[in-house]
Design a protein around this nucleic acid. Structure first.
Ligand SMILES: Nc1ncnc2c1ncn2[C@H]1C[C@H](O)[C@@H](COP(=O)(O)OP(=O)(O)OP(=O)(O)O)O1
Length: 592
DNA sequence: TCTTCTGTGCTCACCAC
DNA sequence: GTGGTGAGC
C-alpha cells in the first residue's frame, strides 16, 4: 500500500538516498550521468541458465526437474529440482543416484562434449573425462541471442553484458523518454525556468511491476515506513514496466525465464535481483536501501568475501553492513588505505560505476582441459592440443561467420605441471584464409615444445592444458602472409584440402589414415568401434612422440647454444624481490 | 530452493616488466 | 607485447 499524501516532507540529510529536488533540467537534459537523480539501473539474470538452455533444447516442460552435470558434479539445477533439495553445492547430496532417488522424474543431462577429438561436440549420457572434452558453446550461443534481444530493446549503448547469463541496463534515458511522452507538460518548465522543481509526482500503482523491497529502515513507528512517493520512485516504476516487457519478450521468443533487480545503481540492482527468484523482478526504492543493506553480512558482497572482508571483520568486530556504518571514513582509511572510500561508499549503497556497452565479440577464446590422469608423455600433450585446437577452430569459424573480419592476434598455450602454477607461452597467430584444426594444432604444438620440450623428464606430469586465442578483433591491414611461419612444412595445402582433412579426421569410415603434419606421411589407423579408436589414438600418440623426440634432440642443442630465451632467469626475480607486497591494501584482494 | 559452499571450464581486468 | 594473478559466473 502506498497512499498519496500531501504532508510536508521532513528532509533528513543523513540518508544519502534522500530525495533531492528534481528539476526540468534533469528531465530535459541529453547528458545523462551516473549522478542523475532519476538514475535507474537493472540487472537481469537468467534462472538456472544452463539448465534452462537444456530444457529449451530438449523441449521439456517448464515444471520438469532437471539438472545439468559436468563430469560428476551438478553445474546447474533448475528450480523444480531445487524443491527436492538438490543443489549445486549440496554437501549432503552429491551423487546423481541420490538425486534420482529423491526425485525419480529428474531429468539428468550432461553438458555436450567432444569425444576423442571429434570435430563437433555431441551429447553423451556418461562421457569419460579421460577422453572427452566439455563444450559450452551452446550456452554461449543462447546467451548471445538473449543479449542481442536486450540490446535491441533499449536505447543504443545502454546495456552491458555482465556475464554469460547477466546483463545490466541503464534505464535512465528510456525512462525520461517515457515520462516526457506520458506527461508532456514536463517538457514545459514554468516561466521557462529550467531549474524550477517538478510538480508533485503522481501516485504509483505498483501492481504487477514486481516485488517492492520493504522500506523497513529500523524506525519503530510503523507510520514512518510509509514513505512519500518521489520522482525516483516514478522512474523506478517506469523502468520496471520496461524491464517486465523485455523479460516477457525473452520468455516468449526464446523460452527463458529471468529475474531482475531495479535500483539506482549497478551494485544495488545486482543485490536486489536475488531478492525473489525465479521468474520475477524486485525493486529497491531509495527509502529501502539502508534497511535492505544493514542486516546483510558484508562478507557476502563482491570483493569483500576474501581477505579484505576478513581483515575488516576482525579489525572492527563487525559482521553486517550495519555494524560497519558506525565506523568513520577516517578510521577506515587509517587501517585500509585507498580501498576505504570504496568500502565506505558501498556500505551506504553508493556506486558510481557506469553501465558500459561491451563489444558483442569476446576478446579471447579459451579451450581448456583438466587432465584427471596427468600426462607423462609429450605426445599425449599433442593429442590434447589437437582436441583443444578442434574446439577453437569451430568457435573461431562460428565467430567469423558472424563477423567476417575477425582474427586473433595471438595464440597462447598454458600448461600446469603437477601442482605448480601454470606456465604459458604465446605467439602471434598470422592470418590464413581458414583457421583449420591443423593450423591451430601446429601453432599449439610449437608452443608446447617451447613450454615443456627441453625440460621434459620421466617424472614430468602435466595436469592441465589450456589453448587460447587472444586479441580477437576485426582485422586491420598487414600480416597476410603465413609463408615461413611453419618452417618445416614443405607442401602448401589449399583451403579445400584443409577442410576436407578436418572432416576426414572426424568422419572417415572403416580403415582410416591421417596425414602427419610434420612428415606429410599418411599413416593408417583402424576405425570403427571403441577398440579401434583407442588403437588409432595410440598410433597417433606414438607417432607424435617420435617427432617430439627428434625435436627434443634438436632444441636441446639450441638451448645450450643460445640460452637467450628461458634458462634460469627465473630464480633471480622471484618472491622476495619482485613483489613490493602490493601497495596499500591490494594484497588483500586475494580470495581466501 | 533460501547459513555462497565444490571443481571444471570459461571470460575479463589488472599488474610488473 | 609477454607472462602471471585474481575475481566471478
Ligand atoms: N563456478 C562455475 N563453473 C562453471 N560454470 C559455472 C560456475 N558458476 C556458474 N556457472 C554457469 C552455470 C550457470 O547456469 C550459469 C549462470 O550462473 P549463476 O547465475 O550463478 O547461476 P544460475 O543461473 O544457474 O542460477 P540462478 O537462477 O541462481 O542465477 O553459469
Amino acid at each position: 500500500m502506498n497512499s498519496f499524501k500531501a504532508k510536508a516532507k521532513a528532509q533528513h540529510n543523513i540518508d544519502t538516498h534522500d530525495p533531492i529536488t528534481v528539476t526540468y533540467r534533469h528531465i530535459l537534459t541529453t547528458n545523462i550521468t551516473n549522478k542523475h537523480p532519476l538514475r535507474v539501473v537493472a540487472l537481469v539474470d537468467s534462472d538456472a541458465f544452463y539448465a534452462a538452455c537444456e530444457m529449451v533444447r530438449l523441449g521439456v516442460d517448464r515444471e520438469t526437474p532437471l539438472v545439468v552435470m559436468q563430469w560428476s558434479s551438478f553445474i546447474a539445477v533448475n528450480y523444480p529440482a531445487r524443491k527436492y533439495g538438490i543443489s549445486r553445492f549440496g554437501k549432503d547430496l552429491v551423487s546423481v543416484e541420490e538425486a534420482r532417488k529423491r526425485c525419480p522424474e529428474l531429468r539428468v543431462v550432461h553438458v555436450a562434449t567432444y569425444k576423442e577429438g571429434q570435430a563437433e561436440p555431441g551429447y553423451f549420457d556418461k562421457p569419460d573425462p579421460l577422453t572427452h572434452k566439455v563444450s559450452l558453446d551452446y550456452y554461449r550461443r543462447e546467451s548471445k541471442k538473449i543479449h542481442q534481444l536486450i540490446a535491441d530493446s533499449v536505447p543504443a549503448g545502454t546495456s552491458e553484458r555482465a556475464s554469460i547469463d547477466e546483463a545490466f541496463i541503464d534505464f535512465t534515458r528510456a525512462v525520461l523518454d517515457v515520462m516526457l511522452e506520458r506527461w508532456p507538460h514536463l517538457s514545459k518548465p514554468p516561466q521557462d525556468d529550467m531549474d524550477s522543481a517538478l510538480p508533485t509526482p503522481p501516485p504509483i500503482n505498483w501492481d504487477g511491476l514486481g516485488h517492492l523491497i520493504p522500506s523497513n529502515d529500523g524506525v519503530e513507528d510503523p507510520e514512518a515506513f510509509d514513505h512519500e512517493t518521489t520522482w525516483h520512485d516514478v522512474a523506478l516504476s517506469i523502468a520496471a514496466e520496461l524491464m517486465d516487457n523485455i523479460r516477457k519478450e525473452i520468455d516468449s521468443r526464446f523460452g527463458y525465464t529471468t529475474s531482475a533487480g531495479l535500483a539506482k545503481n549497478k551494485f544495488l540492482a545486482k543485490l536486489c535481483a536475488s531478492y525473489k527468484k525465479p521468474n520475477s523482478q524486485s525493486i529497491l526504492r531509495n527509502t529501502a536501501i539502508v534497511g535492505y543493506l544493514q542486516p546483510l553480512p558484508f562478507q557476502k558482497i563482491r570483493f569483500l568475501g576474501g581477505k579484505l572482508g576478513q581483515a575488516i571483520s576482525e579489525e572492527f568486530e563487525a559482521a553486517t553492513v550495519g555494524d560497519l556504518l558506525s565506523i568513520g571514513l577516517g578510521e577506515l582509511q587509517s587501517k585500509f588505505g585507498d580501498n576505504a572510500i570504496w568500502v565506505y561508499e558501498l556500505m551506504r549503497g553508493i556506486d558510481r560505476s557506469e553501465v558500459k556497452e561491451r563489444p558483442d565479440q569476446t576478446k579471447s577464446m579459451l579451450a581448456s582441459k583438466n587432465l584427471p590422469k596427468p600426462i607423462t608423455r609429450p605426445g599425449e600433450g599433442q593429442h590434447w592440443i589437437r582436441v583443444l585446437a578442434a574446439e577453437l577452430a569451430l568457435r573461431l569459424r562460428e565467430a567469423r561467420a558472424e563477423t567476417p573480419g575477425l582474427w586473433p592476434k595471438s595464440i597462447v598455450l598454458h600448461a600446469r605441471k603437477g601442482y605448480e602454477s601454470s606456465r604459458s607461452r604465446q605467439a602471434p597467430f598470422p592470418f590464413v584464409q581458414d583457421a583449420t584444426v591443423d593450423v591451430i594444432a601446429a601453432a599449439g604444438d610449437k608452443l608446447w615444445k617451447e613450454l615443456v620440450g627441453v625440460s621434459w623428464t620421466d617424472k614430468t606430469k602435466v595436469s592441465s592444458l589450456q589453448l587460447s586465442f587472444t586479441g580477437i578483433a576485426t582485422q586491420e591491414t598487414g600480416q597476410q602472409n603465413i609463408e615461413g611461419f611453419f618452417g618445416s612444412r614443405k607442401r602448401k595445402r589449399t583451403e579445400e584440402e584443409d577442410v576436407e582433412k578436418a572432416l576426414d579426421d572426424a568422419h572417415d569410415v572403416g580403415f582410416s589414415e591421417f596425414t602427419c603434419e610434420r612428415c606429410s606421411k599418411n599413416i593408417k589407423i583402424p576405425w570403427g568401434g571403441k577398440e579401434e579408436e583407442m588403437q588409432a589414438q595410440a598410433i597417433r600418440v606414438e607417432h607424435e612422440d617420435f617427432h617430439f623426440a627428434m625435436d627434443l634432440a634438436k632444441s636441446a642443442d639450441m638451448a645450450t647454444a643460445a640460452p637467450s630465451k628461458r634458462p634460469d632467469s627465473r630464480s633471480k626475480t622471484t618472491a622476495a624481490s619482485s613483489k613490493p607486497q602490493g601497495k596499500g591494501i591490494e594484497k588483500f584482494f586475494k580470495r581466501r
